[in-house]
Design a protein around this nucleic acid. Sequence first.
DNA 1: CTTGACCTTCCACTATACTGGAAGGTCAAG
DNA 2: CTTGACCTTCCAGTATAGTGGAAGGTCAAG
Lengths: 129, 129
Amino acid sequence: MRIGETAAAVGMTAKTLRFYEDRGLLPAADRAPNGYRDYPHETVSRLEFIRRGRTAGLTLAQIGDILSVRDIGQAPCVHVRDLLAKQLRDLDAQIAELTALRATVAEFHDAAAAGDPAACDPERICSYL
Amino acid sequence: MRIGETAAAVGMTAKTLRFYEDRGLLPAADRAPNGYRDYPHETVSRLEFIRRGRTAGLTLAQIGDILSVRDIGQAPCVHVRDLLAKQLRDLDAQIAELTALRATVAEFHDAAAAGDPAACDPERICSYL
DNA sequence: CTTGACCTTCCACTATACTGGAAGGTCAAG
DNA sequence: CTTGACCTTCCAGTATAGTGGAAGGTCAAG
């Protein structure tokens, strides 16, 4: 399969596939006599795996690690489980941080909504922030 | 006040102040005969305002907009209120997105924690993702 | 006179996941 | 023979908020 065909099969662009190759997520493809990349069919599942990983919020580096484990013949399940656990922890931390920020902003906003513009102290630039 | 002194007064670095000047958040400072920047005292409140804005998750561009309004002599309160409202909406959207992602990841993770590594289908790379 | 702590400018780099574009090769169809 | 749709490589840029470092000027103290 040529690069554009492969990319289209998973809704990506040829550029993205070259980029993934550069980042080590795709092995260097065989080349046709004219120099064009020639992908085997399993590249499609590999790309779909990469997309599932992205959907789960994993970075390309993390997905690359999983693929490396798989590529040396080991089942990456344990690694995947650990990564997913870490991802859950990270997400919880991020959500907590954003929730705290939201509370801060809400306080500022409530004061601004209730307040009197004339109360602005020039030295403070804006009394609502 | 010299740049290092001013920066230290608010816990920032001289580099950061030059960067803020470059981004238009600080007006170009007067220069001493030797070329050193010479900041008036109100620069400290301006920097503290910038920091409060950052604490509220505003971007430097948004803070710069507020300061511009203030600098042409208008009270930026209405602008600030609108920005804070937008910030609340953005935060809610982000939190919702992360929460949905967390649910997806939790599903994958639960399957991985319960599952049998032998079930891995090589074609699918990892049955848990 | 030198040392050290300041200050100046300017350029590059960090991280992430691509995207855009230039310059050029390949190939089937009309 | 040309046109268009492919493909190749490589370089640069996107967004954010700075940080790091080079090369050099200034100034008070010892």
